[in-house]
Nucleic acid binder design. Sequence first.
RNA 1: GUCCCCAUCGUCUAGCCCGGUCCAGGACACCGGCCUUUCACGCCGGCGACGCCGGUUCAAAUCCGGCUGGGGACGCCA
Length: 514
Amino acid sequence: MECHSKDSWPKRSQIKERNACRKKSKPWKASTSTGVSMNEIVTRFPPSPTGHLHIGGARTALLNWLYARHHQGKFILRIEDTDTERSSREMTDSILQAMDWLGLHWDEGPYFQSTRFELYHQHIDWLLEKGLAYYCSCTPDEVEAMRQKAWNAGEKPKYDGSCRELGLGPGPGRVVRLKAPLSGQTVYQDLIKGQNAVDNRELDDFVLRRADNTPTYNLAVVVDDALMGINTILRGDDHISNTPKQVLLYQALQFERPSFAHVPMILGPDKKRLSKRHGAMSVLEYKARGYLPGALINYLVRLGWSSGDQELFTREELIEKFTLNSMGKSACVFNQEKLDWVNGRHLKQIPPSDLAAELRTRLRNRGLPGVDEAYAEKIVPLLQPRSQTLEQMAEQAVFFAQETEDIPYDPEMLDKFFTTELKQYLRDLLGRLERLQDFSQAAQEELLAEFLQEKDIKFKRIAQPIRIALTGKKASPGLFETMEVLGRDRTTARLRRALTQAEGSGKQTASAST
RNA sequence: GUCCCCAUCGUCUAGCCCGGUCCAGGACACCGGCCUUUCACGCCGGCGACGCCGGUUCAAAUCCGGCUGGGGACGCCA
């Protein structure tokens, strides 16, 4: 407790001052922390650094961010690393990196729970002092037996309260449990699901402090959320059954209760909770695969949320339109195809100059370094309509980047398209292209039209052979735009080489067919 | 097993709160067509859903109940 005064415990009334004090001594982000209004919405995203930021977590973060932004509130990032065994610095970095890439910038934090243990202990001690919590000496095995017993009796598995009235003091192997109410109901209002009430008999005296002297999740979240002034807890509905416990803690600690909003979860195609089994679920993996942050956000927000019939949104539109009223209640299935489509649509909207660097990097990763900025910028617009991801774009840009002698020609294709007659045409055309003054699309088209008329053939006949010569593939962007971007040198060199290759491999077939 | 949450096309959803305008609208995917130098893009069209049973009502996707189905939680994980 950085700024805590010596006298131990915290009257609730001191909390405001404590917060004020924190702000002074730790100006995480001084600019936004000032001039805060009383009703300001404060949300948070509390990832546990035990893995990469995955799709599900990203959506939770996104929703919290959007909600805060929409209401001009504050979005706090808190790293829940109380599980020192499974938490790691690498994962923390990875999560921050993913958040940053998605553009989900936080106003405060990141706070680390591992640096706040003393705070949690003060609150636990206070509960102990007030008789709202107690020491328990039951071993994990004994508790397990109690659960088993309850299960067998057709009841909800829970701790039976053996130590509740024993008045035990601290000791090795002892945990601290909350003295939860034995009857009545715990009721709370959910911004999305409406009112929820749970019979207190369903709840048990859950652990607040473990035998190893570390605080548990439920205790730490409540203390942090309350002290950080978080007033809107927006999270996955897998937390619904935790909520009554936390409400109990808010009450016991005399904290003001926040609003809860439980959003439906994202399911895999098998309708099971999203997990590693479902493939690449890490946000950074999507980045690597060529998805755009704006598109991912667009897709993610549409999972459970909608605004009329609109499918595509800019970041600004989302901030403007996002409300919890239009949030659905039921779980939804993650659909890769739709994401691809959304990504494709976003991709087409981006100015080519913004994509050029990305394309160059991805080409370089494929061992094709020979594409400069200007060339890349010309390639991009040809590929934008044909790509759903940046990787697809790079994939299709390969022939632009390859050296002429590296363009692979499939002998079968050469045989099929480079007949003797066609070769004659192509040789003729090659000469004309070499002499063409202005190597622009328009000039090429004009030249071609003349040529076709002269030879009295249809464009269809020579289009595919040319395409194969230039790209090595049977699918590519339009011929003229491709030639213009490739430039005269590459275009003519490739035609020449294809002709030569066809001479070698296609000979027999060509002569045989004549 | 117990508790909680949820329920419109294969998927994401609009409509449901404030019953009639819904023989249910949009999007992805799929199928067909148009455009066309290939592949895409784009455009047009098609396929396709109110889980079931009761109740309330002149009238129910919309309100109520039950059932079924799906999901989640039941940790000294978060």
